[in-house]
């Protein structure tokens, strides 16, 4: 392989930072690039195809030979999506309300307990943390029947609470875990100083720890938001009124509303995927850290 040859040619005596720009090096770089592009193409193609399809006029859909590139942009699918029998805009609004509320609620509760777990002397801390992790492994499907009956008896089905409450419950362990590991890394002297100056633990949390923890809060919040935004099982089971449904469920029902609605499906998929992908790209550094830190520390 070119890579091996390059390493040998580099020689053991050379410092690792200097490189020789010979044929083998160029071949290695090219191979790396080609492999990367191949992978990237493979993984992004579904997203590309969905985008192209959403802009394609109705009469050009499903034609052979396949047109790999868009010829002209047509926005009619987007128009149809927002003017169908059930307003897709309403579904988006439902999703935004439910996901935002669940995120804020679980960050609020999660911050308090993470602070207690990271900073305050409490008995059986490790046991509590382990129990919190065990909660993550709890399959949602096992609780669906009981939660449904609970929500029905409390007259909460077909309300936003039917989703906010369970979403928060299932994201709370993640919030506690990520925030605890972040709070631990903040030098204890900072909050101790505040307490010497007369702050209560709660005040030192709000005035000292929280401002320093914005990156962790943003990351955990984003991941919780996306998780709630994408959730299907609860959304599908606890809500059956079309005007209260969230986006994943309305996408699922799209097939029944139109005749082979390729264009509309793609347009709807674009509308709900692009903001999330944009958020992920903007905050990608934090998200990568959140995903790995939340799972690797401990």
């Amino acid at each position: 392989m070119a890579m091996v040859a390059g390493q040998r040619a580099g020689g053991a005596q050379m410092p690792p930072t200097r490189r020789r720009y010979n044929g083998a090096w160029i071949a290695r770089r090219t191979l790396l690039w080609v492999l990367n592009l191949f992978f990237l193409f493979f993984f992004l193609f579904p997203l590309y195809w969905q985008t192209v399809t959403s802009f394609r006029p109705e009469n050009e859909l499903g034609t052979t030979p396949i047109q790999w590139f868009p010829t002209h942009f047509d926005l009619s699918h987007y128009y149809n999506v927002f003017n169908g029998p059930v307003s897709f805009a309403q579904n988006i609004l439902n999703s935004v309300i439910v996901s935002t509320a669940a995120t804020l609620l679980s960050l609020l509760i999660g911050t308090f307990s993470a602070y207690a777990l990271a900073r305050l002397p409490l008995p059986a801390k490790r046991t509590i943390l382990v129990l919190v992790i065990v909660m993550v492994t709890f399959p949602g499907i096992a609780l669906v029947a009981a939660l449904f009956i609970f929500l029905r008896d409390a007259h909460l089905t077909n309300t936003y609470w039917a989703l906010i409450l369970p979403y928060c419950a299932f994201s709370l362990p993640f919030a506690i875990w990520v925030l605890t590991s972040f709070f631990r890394d903040i030098p204890p002297e900072l909050s101790e100083q505040a307490e010497v100056d007369g702050c209560t633990p709660l005040q030192s949390l709000i005035r000292v720890i929280l401002p320093l923890s914005m990156p962790a809060l943003v990351t955990a919040g984003l991941l919780i938001f996306i998780g709630a935004w994408n959730e299907f099982l609860f959304a599908y089971t606890f809500i059956d009124q079309p005007s209260m449904q969230t986006v994943p469920v309305s996408i699922y029902y799209f097939g029944g509303l139109h005749n082979l609605p390729w264009g509309e499906i793609s347009a709807a998929a674009e509308v709900v995927s692009l903001p999330i992908i944009a958020l992920v790209l903007i905050f990608q550094r934090g998200i990568v850290q959140g995903l790995t830190a939340g799972s690797l520390k401990g």
Partner: peptide
């Protein structure tokens, strides 16, 4: 950054796109 995108695509959207396209 681009490679991360598929992980955050809505699973139902993902399944609908694969199924139909």
């Amino acid at each position: 950054a681009l490679m991360i995108a598929p992980f955050f695509v809505m699973p139902t959207v993902n399944a609908v796109v694969w199924k139909n396209f």
